[in-house]
Simulated assay, not measured.
Amino acid sequence: MGALLCATMIGSLATALGFPLPPNDRRIGCIDGLRGYLALFVLVHHFVIWIQIVRLHGKWAAPTVNLLNNFGAGGVALFFMTSALVFYPRVLAGFRATSWVTTYITRVFRIIPLLAISLLLMSLIIALRTGNRPNLHTIKDVLEWITSWAQPSIMGYADTGRLDAYVPWSLWYEWMFYLFVLPACAFAMDATRGRGPTWTLPVTVLLISLCVRPLHPLGGLSRYLPLFIVGMLAYEAQRTETIRRILSAKWMAVPAAISLVAGLISAPTPYGAPQLALIGFFFATVACGNDFGGAFQTKGARALGECSYGIYLLHGIALNLLFVEGASFTERFSTAQVFALLPVVAAAVAGVTLLTYLLIERPLIRAGSRLARFATKQNLRIDSPQVEAAP
């Protein structure tokens, strides 16, 4: 209910700001309405962790209640599925038909700028808390953060990652998906085209990945690869008329919601095969256009979805400030009462990220698209003899 209230408030603010929403023909089901809720669930997960830190044991540790822990792990799992869903058309097109220059330029402009802003905010907080200043070694540390390679201490500040709730860890696996999994699947699609339905490729990769996962052949990616493949299968489901019609039916929201809850409460993480199936079924219904009684269709939900990356990256900083600099304030509340601050924090973070989307993300996304188009034209001029011979 709190998430729905937050979406309603953000919808009103988005209307006042003239917040732009993507046209309906660019939407895949109701996924854009889901993403904002996922980011809010990750915020709830980290809010609970901060309660544990300041009221219980002082350590950063996962909540012991499966549902609360899966607000974080499950939310990220569904984000991974979303990435695969959105980029699966490149797999269907095949390796040779995809402009990888465009893909990677636009990804850099989508991911890096706001990550850099979050790192700048963290550095400012560190400087104000410690009096430390950047030096030459800071450049190396910043580059590791920006590339998601690692999360070293910045300016000597111990446990810098706690400042943003360690959220950039997932970006490393996003990059692994874009750089290796996506082109490999596109290449495999070219190699197998015409030998069977296209869904056989993701099904095969999913079965193989689940079988070999205990051996960790791909390191940490072995755990998350099935999530990306489930996102690809959700795309296959929504492009199949019969499946899309069944899963988008209003009554299907009930078993899908039950499936999601079961997947989130049945284990501490969503990575087991049963949890993967349960959560994947829910995700497929949303991808097929099931709006769950309108919850994923409102302007507020869609606006939250557009700024979900900002919520994901910046909420940890807001929580850190609340429970560190704001400790004298939060200590006035009992443990039960402090949860009343949660919707206020969520609404504040969502409101700020509406602005960061308008002022930072959207302009740079557009700049990346323009650069990608320019780079693609340049490649065509170099590679095409017809263009070279043109007067």
Rank of each mutant, 00 (worst) to 15 (best):
L5C: 08
A7P: 12
A7D: 07
T8N: 01
I10T: 01
I10M: 04
S12L: 14
A14T: 03
T15N: 03
F19I: 02
L21Q: 14
P23V: 13
N24E: 15
V44P: 00
H46G: 02
R55Y: 13
H57I: 07
G58D: 04
N66T: 07
N69A: 14
N69Y: 08
G72Y: 14
F87A: 11
Y88A: 08
V91G: 06
L92P: 01
T98V: 02
W100T: 00
R107Q: 09
I111D: 00
I111M: 07
I112F: 00
P113Q: 08
L115N: 02
L115W: 09
A116F: 14
L124E: 03
I126R: 01
L128E: 12
T138S: 10
D141T: 11
W145H: 15
T147S: 15
P152W: 07
S153A: 14
M155W: 09
A158C: 11
Y166E: 09
V167G: 08
V167D: 02
L171S: 06
W172Q: 03
Y173P: 01
P183I: 00
P183M: 11
A184W: 02
M189G: 09
D190R: 15
R193H: 09
W199A: 12
P202W: 13
V203P: 13
V203I: 14
L206S: 13
I208T: 12
V212G: 06
R213C: 15
R213S: 06
L215I: 12
P217T: 09
L218N: 01
L218M: 03
G220E: 05
G220Y: 06
R223L: 10
Y224I: 15
L233C: 04
E236V: 11
E241G: 01
R244V: 10
I246L: 04
A249L: 00
K250W: 03
M252V: 08
A253Q: 02
A257H: 03
A257Y: 02
A257S: 09
A257V: 04
A262M: 13
L264C: 13
T269N: 12
T269G: 15
P270E: 10
Y271D: 15
L276R: 07
I279W: 13
G280H: 13
V286D: 08
G289V: 07
T298Q: 00
K299G: 09
G300E: 04
R302Y: 13
A303S: 12
G305D: 08
C307E: 12
S308W: 04
L319E: 11
L321R: 05
L322F: 02
G326P: 08
A327E: 15
A327M: 04
S328V: 10
S334G: 12
F339N: 07
A340D: 14
V345M: 15
A348I: 14
A350Y: 09
I360K: 00
I360V: 09
E361P: 08
R362S: 06
R362D: 09
R366D: 15
G368P: 10
A375P: 03
E388T: 04
A389I: 13
P391Y: 04
